[in-house]
Design a binder for these strands. Sequence first.
DNA 1: AGGCGTTGTCATAGT
DNA 2: AAACTATGACAACGC
Length: 750
Amino acid sequence: MLSLKKYLTEGLLQFTILLSLIGVRVDVDTYLTSQLPPLREIILGPSSAYTQTQFHNLRNTLDGYGVHPKSIDLDNYFTARRLLSQVRALDRFQVPTTEVNAWLVHRDPEGSVSGSQPSSGLTLESSSGLQDVTGPDNGVRESETEQGFSEDLEDLGAVAPPVSGDLTKEDIDLIDILWRQDIDLGAGREIFDYSHRQKEQDVDKDLQDGAEQDDTWSGEGAEALARNLLVDGETGESFPAQFPADISSITEAVPSESEPPGLQNNLLSPLLTGTDSPFDLEQQWQDLMSIMEMQAMEVNTSTNEILYSAPPGDPLSTNYSLAPNTPINQNVSLHQASLGGCSQDFSLFSPEVESLPVASGSTLLPLVPSNSTSLNSTFGSTNLAGLFFPPQLNGTANDTAGPELPDPLGGLLDEAMLDEISLMDLAIEEGFNPVQASQLEEEFDSDSGLSLDSSHSPSSLSSSEGSSSSSSSSSSSSSSSSSSSSSSSSSASSSFSEEGAVGYSSDSETLDLEEAEGAVGYQPEYSKFCRMSYQDPSQLSCLPYLEHVGHNHTYNMAPSALDSADLPPPSALKKGSKEKQADFLDKQMSRDEHRARAMKIPFTNDKIINLPVEEFNELLSKYQLSEAQLSLIRDIRRRGKNKMAAQNCRKRKLDTILNLERDVEDLQRDKARLLREKVEFLRSLRQMKQKVQSLYQEVFGRLRDENGRPYSPSQYALQYAGDGSVLLIPRTLADQQARRQERKPKDRRK
DNA sequence: AGGCGTTGTCATAGT
DNA sequence: AAACTATGACAACGC
């Protein structure tokens, strides 16, 4: 029951505080529960927010220990490190990667020419990936297929400027990326800059810094724009200005009014495995893209270009700049544009293919906006329709294109994208923690320093370990303490261990005195606390903790007088010093001890307080005590127990706060990691969209009617059928189907 | 002198 | 019912 209560109270309290800390402007329910649980738990395991109480319990029972914030608590530090490493370990569990791989594998079976290409294709932003793609060697590298994406993720992680294996630096990296993403939302870079924040918040400096970076990026983006007429606003990738003019023997599907079987999927569907429902995905896309659009509106190209990427000279850019004269594959078959074909098509992104001049922007190239704004909107709307339909059709395309690009990554991106706003908000709010934490630490440290300065503590510290033993031995030397200390500690230990509570001893000087005089105070407590409360190396914490406790409260227990009555003072002590010390001890005695002495209570307060009831009663029965004495004894016992209870209570409070602090830090780390993953996924998605778009344009551009004339993209569209065939259908029909498909998911939701 | 943190104590509720 | 524990509130104390 106790533990249950502990769970409830601490769990609720902690969770509440966490919510208040983290969820100020965030729909935490959505973020933590309603939307993410599966993903979150898959990725992270049970949320630390939810497992808080268990964690706490674990701390108390296993390696828990009393951590006083004032203490320089090494174990606390190590515990934090352990948790950090756990978080890192979780980080290694790349579910998204797994899913992506699954998707790749899924596509491979149909893959024909080069199944490995898709993975390479996904790595556009990684230099190695780019090299693979652009390299002349487009041969089959199937071995890369499985690990390609994970590698890519790694690479992607390395794309951003300062990167290293260090988590902190990764975070910084992420922060850079995110900041670029969020700058338009008003988030300053400094918000993400942990180290920076830890150093101090020099707001002015940060703002200036952020402005400088912004300017830099703007300049970069402008530069890129100047260099390449067609530059993706987000990726910085340049696009071909012209479409391939040559004609190949492409099998055409005759435009037909009838709806071909399996026509539901547009050509864009190659990315789908065929069974995935594009509807929800599209909705997610919409959500995401609305956010992106918002960003694009507020900031412009400069930011986005940097955000999504590749430096101007990046291989990626070159990869996408098509060389007009490059020969193309003459044998492209529309039928290959199936899933398997898709793989092959990705292979088409080899320089040869990509270098194909794209049909002039007049028709097919909504993707090739002439200015940065449209570039942004291109990805901003990110409707695949926007990618694949001519500009003039975009209006409808936005409505209809929904299902057109089912996202193989949707299951994962889904969560991330739906939470875009929340994440962004979180990112913006993220600033508080490190500062807070550092402040807390400083506060604690300073307090600890104060404690160190407290006049009587040093000796107590040095004797604290020995005090437990010395106390027992000294107690045993006294008439009755031996049994009392052991018995009391056992009883107390049961209760303490039961609840994971931690008692801590009272004034340290008491120990000192007790050690000197063999007096009996609360020592058993002391040793007990250090010994049994936490069976952990962190016992170290006892020292600083006690140290801090060591205020000079004169009413604290100082067993001296009473004990000196009980025990013959050591003859070795000189008279003067003895008297002096007696006075001192007198002052150190607690009020109850004074009272006890005044009332001539024949046994120690320690016994009174710590003896089990039976033994306590037995002890009382051995003496003829007046009513006043009995009353005092019971009060002493009550107060003594309550004192320990209060100490435990306060300690628990501190532990709770510390745990909360740690949990907040952990959650922030998780959040940063998730954001980082999201960015990576978005990057991959963008690349895939671009590839699909290029494929579409390439295929469409090769189509010729009976008269050998190219089809107008405003009148015809390619659709990808479930059976792997690609059909050329009238645009109107495609739009209708797209609308139809768009409604389905909505209906389904209801 | 007053603020602040720590500790002990009381009252009370809960176990 | 008794014993014990938990905790908010308050006061004493020292810095």
